[in-house]
Design a protein around this nucleic acid. Structure first.
Lengths: 201, 201
DNA sequence: AATGTGATGTCATCTGATGACATGACTCTA
DNA sequence: TAGAGTCATGTCATCAGATGACATCACATT
């Protein structure tokens, strides 16, 4: 029953206490979601491929969706740290944009992998919901960071939400682009476009 | 077993074919979500209070969350219609903002009801996820409306996403406000604030 | 060798969700 | 007015996600 499980990572016998169950589950989940789709994949399938039981899956991930998103916490932390460390700046919007820009190198280096993950998410409403709330929480965290710097309540929320909007649009453009494109450049260009768009009359 | 169900709307005997099951379910759900919280409310409880079975609940609403959101479709339609009907305008951003502004009167007249619904949603992550995807879909629809008007791809997405961001912030401010406040005014003021914030250097 | 600790398996159970089918109530028409 | 048709609902069965309780296995420490 066990030992038949074969993780996508290199593993030999894989007994009960083979280390790296979390990583194997993550790999197995992404692979299966790509192969058959999210809904068609049972948690038991993922667990089997990773060589564990379904119960163990839920010890590593809160639910079936989270397996695709828990890595995103890293991005939020980095953006937040950048925001804290940043020098005083003219506009809160510039501040948040700069903070977001520091995270582009984490995901920007492998567009194909990002595209795979994005394709899975784009194909399922539940996954989109989870993605959106992750982004919203990131935005809220950034807004709080601004408030701690003394930025007004509404202004902080507005800057963070707007920057997140720019980020989403830039990210989408980057994923869709056929030509060579740097995520950081896409972000800057989109921000410039917003400036034009929102220019006071 | 039946006949014991007592909807929050005025109803007498309420036999099997008492009309308005959808509305009764909606009322019952909101009331129970407020009383005990979303997670603590079983679909069977909602159905019982509405005088139907759980199976019937799922014939009216796709899932336990949707009962709080299906009314929002009206807002999207109105915004979209306003966007289609609007005259040519300088900036796509102005266009979307104007479209969103037409919807403020639908929900703006009863802040207390909105607050109740908002309180339920704010207390539960699943509900926030659903709310976010609804707003995202509305934003996407508005972006498509702009594209049909010939607005460029990225610019359309950016205008819609930014306007949605403004809307969210304004809405939050309106809900939180202790003083008398018109939703439309909040929207306009927040938009003006964005103009300042994003002013080209 | 005994013991403790942590990761995992096993089992039971709940709840959300859905398909299949039966049935009650209402409408229309011959 | 009886009968057919239709629609909303009830009933039953089943599945998948999720969680608590407890047993068990491997490993480290002593």
């Amino acid at each position: 029953m066990r030992g038949s499980g074969r993780g996508s990572t290199t593993l030999g016998g894989m007994g009960r206490w083979e280390p790296g169950a979390g990583g194997r589950l993550r790999d197995a989940a992404l692979a299966l979601y790509l192969e058959r789709g999210f809904e068609q994949t049972m948690v038991a399938d993922i667990a089997e491929r990773a060589g564990v039981t379904a119960r163990t899956f839920f010890r590593y991930f809160a639910d079936k969706r989270e397996v695709l998103f828990d890595a995103a916490a890293e991005l939020e932390e980095k953006a937040l740290a950048a925001l804290e460390a940043a020098p005083a700046m003219a506009s809160p919007l510039d501040l948040v944009m700069a903070a977001l820009e520091t995270t582009t190198d984490i995901i920007g280096y492998d567009r194909e992998l990002v595209r795979k993950r994005h394709a899975v998410i784009a194909a399922n409403a539940e996954l989109q919901e989870r993605e959106l709330i992750k982004l919203a929480r990131k935005s809220a965290a950034l807004a709080d960071g601004l408030r701690r710097r003394g930025v007004g309540d509404t202004e902080a929320g507005l800057a963070a939400e707007t920057a997140s909007a720019v980020y989403r649009v830039a990210f989408q453009r980057w994923v869709d682009a056929t030509e060579e494109l740097d995520l950081r450049d896409a972000l800057r260009e989109t921000f410039a476009q917003l400036r034009t768009l929102a220019a006071p009359r």
